[in-house]
Amino acid sequence: MTEQELNVFLDLEWNCAAFTPEEPSVSAPLSLKQWARIISRHPELQEFCPFSEFTPDEWLIALEKQPTFAWRCTYWNDFTPVKWQRLLQHQPTLLHYCEIPDHPAIRSGLLASDSYFSTDIDTHDFTLGDWFWVVKHNPSTWFQCPSREQFTKPMWWSILYSSAELLTACPCLDQFSDEDWRRLNILPKLKSRIRNSEQFRKLIDLVRHPFHHLKFDDDLSL
C-alpha cells in the first residue's frame, strides 16, 4: 500500500464512520454495487444477478463474503495489489487466482487474514501502509511490527476502529477530537471484554476525553 493509497483509505474510512452502513435497496433498478452487496449476503439470488456486468470493484465486494463465486470472475488480472490485499484479508484461499503472489501488499493481506503465522510470511519489504493493514486487521501482530512507532494519529484512529483491543497501546488518545471519539464509538466494541465495574472504570479513565462531563455511580456493575 503506497502512501497515497493509505491516505485515501484513511480519509474515506473516517468520513464513512459518520454514517450508518448502507443497506442494499430492493427497489428497481438496482446498481451494480447494490447487486454485489445483495449477492454477497444472498447467494441464492445468483440466477438474477448480472455477473457479466460486474467490474473488479463489484467482484471485490461479492467475493469478500462469497468466494464460491470466484469461478465466475474473469477480472483477476485487473485486480490491483491493494484490491488483492483487501480480498485476501477476508479470503486467503483465493491466493491461487493471483499472479503476483510475491508482491508485499499481497503478502500483507495474507498476514492480515490471521491464517498465517508471522514467521511464515516474508515482511522485509513491507511499506508502512502494508504494516498498518496487517496490524489493523490482525492485532496479534502488533509486537512483531517494526513500523509501529511511525503510525500517525489517523492511522491509529483507523486501527482502533477495527481493533479496539489495541486501545492501551495507542500513544495519541489525547489528540482525538470529540468527533473522532464519536465516530470511533469504542465502548460498544469493548463491551464484551469488560467483566466488572473496575475494568469499566479503567476504560473510562483511559478514554477520559469524550467522557469528561459524565459521572458514574460507585455501584455500577456490568
Rank of each mutant, 00 (worst) to 15 (best):
E149L: 03
E149H: 05
E149D: 13
E149V: 08
E149S: 07
Q150K: 04
Q150E: 06
F151D: 05
T152D: 12
T152S: 11
T152N: 10
T152F: 03
T152G: 10
K153F: 08
P154T: 09
P154V: 15
P154H: 08
P154I: 06
M155K: 10
M155L: 11
M155I: 14
M155Q: 15
W156K: 12
W156S: 01
W156N: 07
W156E: 01
W157E: 12
W157L: 10
W157S: 04
W157D: 02
S158D: 14
S158N: 11
S158C: 10
I159H: 04
I159Y: 15
I159R: 06
L160R: 05
L160K: 03
Y161V: 13
Y161P: 00
S162T: 14
S162F: 03
S162V: 09
S162N: 09
S162E: 13
S163W: 14
A164V: 07
A164E: 06
A164K: 11
E165N: 03
E165T: 12
E165I: 15
L166I: 15
L166R: 06
L166A: 11
L166P: 04
L166S: 07
L166D: 11
L166E: 09
L166T: 13
L166K: 10
L167R: 10
L167V: 14
L167K: 02
L167G: 01
L167P: 00
T168G: 02
T168W: 12
T168M: 11
T168D: 14
T168R: 08
A169V: 06
A169F: 09
A169Q: 12
C170Q: 01
C170N: 08
C170I: 12
C170E: 10
P171R: 12
P171I: 04
P171T: 06
P171W: 10
C172F: 14
C172K: 13
C172Q: 14
L173A: 05
L173Y: 08
L173R: 10
L173M: 04
L173E: 06
L173T: 04
D174K: 05
D174Y: 09
D174T: 01
D174C: 00
Q175K: 07
Q175I: 14
Q175R: 06
Q175W: 13
Q175H: 11
F176H: 02
F176V: 09
F176R: 04
F176C: 02
F176G: 02
S177D: 05
S177L: 04
D178A: 00
D178L: 12
E179T: 13
E179I: 09
D180S: 11
D180A: 05
D180E: 13
D180T: 06
D180Y: 10
W181L: 04
W181D: 03
W181R: 07
R182Y: 15
R182T: 15
R182K: 14
R182M: 12
R182F: 15
R182E: 15
R183A: 00
R183W: 01
R183T: 03
R183H: 01
L184H: 13
L184G: 03
L184R: 07
L184A: 05
N185G: 00
N185F: 01
N185M: 06
I186T: 04
I186Q: 00
I186A: 01
I186G: 00
L187N: 00
L187Y: 13
L187V: 09
L187G: 04
P188C: 05
P188F: 02
P188S: 07
P188M: 09
K189S: 04
K189M: 02
K189C: 08
